[in-house]
Design a protein around this nucleic acid. Structure first.
Lengths: 346, 346
DNA sequence: AGTAGTTAGTGATACGATTAACTTCACACA
DNA sequence: TGTGTGAAGTTAATCGTATCACTAACTACT
């Protein structure tokens, strides 16, 4: 490999001069600079090696994103995709790289080892060890959705209120037997009906908040929340959602279901079709997110601005990196989008 | 920041011992190792800093992906998404990071500066300078789709034959007035009808091959290719495709259109709707890729295994990194999927 | 002429870690 | 007693770059 030293030698200047030629052109005379660049080109020098530069300068030119579970979700899960799209939309990514950081199953030794200048964290369990690693490295962090960490800016929505509104929409349509399908309360592989004990152990702040919202809405309407069926899919995709939805619909007589994501809601639609239930005549379904998929399924859903969330998170992170004072948390608005999957209780 | 040196000092051992504790546990006695780890934990040491480690060892623990244009396409363009999904599916990404490398518009100074151990390149123009940078840094490369570089493994499909088959399908249905919509022939901002001169200047190998395939099929059927309307969208998304499709349909009397992607084909469907053309009665449309979107639009399309492509590319790259002998190029099969957007010429 | 200020460039060090080569020590064996 | 051996650590070199502190030469001004 050809290094700065080689270029310096060949050009008959000091290594520092070569460095300046690239990073601080105004420190060199125009002629010298050109001579150095030409020598570099002649030797096939590709410019300062980022690792060396990074070690010295402490900056790497990459921003990291930490996502739950495997990287697959980054390209598979619709709302995660929207988030990333938003992050990347920030024009700053013309000369920054985006690094997706996997969370190894064990969770112990994060692959995250300081290759990034800052990290956007999305939907991690409250106590994930990778967060400690991050903080002890002093890497600037912005959190989207969860968890809430002292001293770390958060971008999110009013999950409790939004969840309440989801249920209230159904109650307003006359439904009294409402079911709930959630993605995951604890990342322990469990799937199936959830009781109060497990509810209390939920490690994902967003889910916890949403469930509390459901509870508030139900109880305000005089329903006993312990008798409201709540099922946990154990995953985020249809493959996890459909079986859970089938279970929910077969074991309980519900006229409406709310999901903690559009994917869960679409899983319910799928299950309803298998069970020959008509939507919305026999069953109303309300999702969450308003992902692109929601529109094409005619899904009534709670819209949250995922793309905007991403964009905002990236901007906050850049502010942090710039050394600006710590930005305030941001709470984005949500909105119920009425489509064809919810209707009056028959 | 707490470094190895600090831990070593606190634990009363040499700095090398700390390194061994993390990377070569068998070189230390069990007790010593535990003592070191405990000291590390006590000091809040987060493990070896990747930049330092990378500088010394030459490995960074990250794989890069170079995509055309902005990173936005990574999460927006359906077939790119599938490719990435495939790449990431390789279980190796449990402890490797994936870095998306932007190509700054200028194209001169790639942000790519050696933070990655290897790179998967997707659909770049033949002469993109970033490729030179890559090679002069000696970073292992695998190319997907394009360009074809001497000594660099390539994963792709038989683009020419597949394109031929696309057109032959329409010819077989009796169509004689066929139009073509392509994403981009040269990344120069142009959009509109393409003549033979521009065709010849096309810098994207895949597109060039496809167009040649179209030409072969047309000429085999006795059509003069210079009279076959070909329009360039100038971009990869619907926003670019729809205007191009409108132009194609308004300026030419065609009974069928082939697109170089499903997105282009869907843009044609969109344009047809605006122009009150019935599909497939008035207009047949054939796409390329069989992206998820194709199914929901009932699009007849040329399926190519994008996810598999990604998976394979990742595996080839890992082989390269392992030091295996250079793997052979791979050509994956394609298959025409008949759906509702193509029918006999009325 | 003498002094201050600017410009263009050099020398040296530090960033945080890996790893080859070497030392030390304990133990076994003849 | 001397020698060989393996285990457990240490020493020191090195990776490629950025940048502070400095110098030499030149300009400008009084």
């Amino acid at each position: 490999m050809v290094t700065m030293k080689d270029v310096a030698q060949a050009a008959g200047v000091s290594q520092a001069a070569v460095s300046y030629a690239y990073n601080r052109p105004e420190k060199l005379s125009e002629g010298q600079r050109r001579a150095i660049m030409e020598t570099a080109a002649r030797l096939g020098y590709a410019g300062p090696n980022a690792v060396g530069a990074s070690l010295r300068s402490g900056r790497s030119g990459a921003i990291g994103v930490m996502l739950m579970d495997t990287l697959e979700y980054a390209f598979t899960d619709p709302s995660t995709r929207c988030l990333l799209e938003g992050i990347v939309r920030t024009r700053r990514f013309d000369d920054l790289a985006l690094t997706l950081l996997p969370l190894p199953r064990g969770g112990e030794q994060a692959a995250l080892r300081g290759l990034v200048d800052g990290v956007i964290v999305h939907s991690l369990p409250d106590d994930h060890p990778a967060l400690l690693t991050l903080r002890s490295r002093g890497i600037p962090i912005v959190v989207v959705d969860a968890p809430r960490l002292p001293g770390v800016p958060l971008v999110g929505i009013a999950d409790r209120a939004a969840a309440r509104e989801q249920v209230e929409h159904l109650l307003g349509l006359g439904h009294r037997r409402v079911g709930i399908i959630a993605e995951r309360l604890v990342p322990d592989g469990f799937r199936g009906p959830v009781d109060a004990g497990r509810r209390a152990r939920c490690t994902e702040r967003v889910v916890r908040e949403r469930i509390t919202g459901y509870q508030e809405a139900c109880e305000a309407a005089g329903l006993d929340f312990d008798h409201v069926p709540l099922v946990e899919a154990g995953g985020f995709d249809l493959a996890a959602g459909v079986p859970a939805a089938l279970g929910l619909l077969s074991d309980n007589e519900v006229t409406a279901v709310v999901g903690t994501s559009d994917t869960m809601a679409i899983a319910v639609l799928e299950a309803a079709r298998e069970l020959d239930l008509r939507v919305p005549e026999d069953l109303s379904v309300v999702g969450f997110d308003d992902a692109p998929e929601a529109g094409s399924h005619g899904l009534t859903t709670m819209r949250q601005p995922m793309v905007h969330k991403g964009q905002l998170a990236a901007e906050l992170l850049f502010a942090l990196l710039r050394g600006d004072p710590r930005p305030d948390d941001v709470n984005l608005p949500t909105e119920l989008v009425r489509r064809r999957t919810s209707g009056p209780c028959g």
